[in-house]
Simulated assay, not measured.
Amino acid sequence: MTASNPIDALIAEKGVLLADGATGTNLFNMGLASGEAPELWNESAPDKIVALHQNFVDAGADIILTNSFGGTRHRLKLHNAQDRVHELNKRAAEIARGVADKAGRKVIVAGSVGPTGELLVPLGAMTYDEAVDAFAEQIEGLKAGGAEVAWIETMSAPDEAKAAAEAAIRVGLPYTYTFSFDTAGRSMMGLAPKDVHNVVGGLPESAVAVGANCGVGASDILASLLDMSAAKPEATIIVKGNCGIPEFQGTDIVYSGTPELMSDYVRLAVDGGATIVGGCCGTSFAHLAAMRKALDGHVKAQRPTVEAIVERIGPLRNKTADQSGAGEGEGRRERRRARA
């Protein structure tokens, strides 16, 4: 039996919840090297992970995500750490739990679960059952460390997201899942935002919340939100978009979003039907503090159109899902090591 989830209770109290910002971007600013596994810092630099979470809590986050995005054995194998899945994920949750418990208010610890980086059959070698086992191994560690919910994120393949959801149910944690709609308004493997609600059909426990994260910019993820909320208005929907648009400056990736832009993104997200709003790549502590202030001062207004979003946030980078007409696609499934 899956444990009761804390998200519904906090939504009942607060209405809309603020999730945290970027893990990768902020850890890179703390000295994480490109190609280095952030999960190893749970043991080698725990003080920096504490600072990451504490800064987000201080900025007003209601939900903090553990430093475990690449915590499956398939990801950790790239760093010869495939036999340390349980300990690294447990430590990730313990660090976040320690910060949350000192917050003086309710802060939910969500166990971040990213893609394995492998393709499932028939496109690749991994079976569905093997994926479930890999995710369950990770989520067991997160639960042991005090995570209250499995936060499945940045997915592109529906079958992989379903495998992670099944693993969470097996372990006994409530779960959420989000997709990255970064390919012509759809996920890399062809899922349209309006179909996000149907991914885990047939499982004995439904998701606490579903939605989108990462992607190609704030305007695009808000357009995806409109499709998701129109398809199921009563759903609890997560939007955790990147901070503006990524741009190369030399060898560095810089995100265009200002605190003002991210504040307006929050208002539009709430108006568009999101119940949990946060930031992904590029979202700093200062951005999140501005988002908290915007959320606290906002009264839900008229549902925006795509045109209104573009006018306030900027142009779309991609076609919308209904314009693209893409079917199930075969594509590169390589995911970033951390939510940059």
Rank of each mutant, 00 (worst) to 15 (best):
A96T: 02
G124R: 13
G114I: 04
G71P: 03
K102V: 07
I63A: 01
Q82Y: 11
D47F: 11
P115S: 11
G111T: 08
V99K: 07
I108K: 05
L120A: 10
S68P: 06
A81I: 06
N89C: 05
G60K: 09
L78K: 15
F56Y: 15
A51Q: 14
S34H: 15
L119R: 13
L52H: 02
S112Q: 09
P122E: 12
G98N: 02
L119Y: 14
A37E: 05
G71L: 00
A92G: 04
G71H: 04
I108H: 05
I63Q: 00
F56G: 00
D83H: 13
R105N: 10
L52E: 09
V121F: 13
W41P: 06
N42V: 05
T116A: 13
E118T: 08
H86D: 14
E36N: 02
D83Q: 15
V50I: 14
N42Y: 01
T66E: 03
E39Y: 06
I64A: 04
K106T: 13
L52G: 05
N89F: 09
E39A: 07
N42I: 05
E118V: 09
V57M: 01
P122H: 12
V99M: 01
D101H: 08
G104W: 00
D83V: 09
V113L: 03
A51N: 12
G60L: 04
G60S: 08
K102L: 09
R97T: 13
L123P: 08
G111C: 03
I108T: 01
V121S: 14
F69N: 03
E36Y: 05
D83R: 14
T127C: 06
G70D: 09
L78R: 15
V107F: 02
A103T: 08
E118Y: 14
E118N: 13
E94A: 00
D58L: 09
T127M: 10
T66S: 05
L32M: 11
V85T: 03
V50S: 07
V99Q: 01
A100S: 02
L88Y: 01
K106I: 10
H74N: 14
D101A: 13
T72W: 10
L40K: 13
I108F: 03
L32N: 00
V99W: 04
T127S: 15
E43M: 12
W41E: 04
W41D: 01
G104H: 08
R73L: 11
N42D: 07
V107H: 08
G117Q: 09
A96E: 04
G98R: 01
R105Y: 10
A92D: 00
L78G: 11
V109G: 03
P122L: 12
L40I: 15
E39N: 11
A37L: 08
A103C: 03
L119T: 12
R84G: 11
E87S: 14
R105S: 09
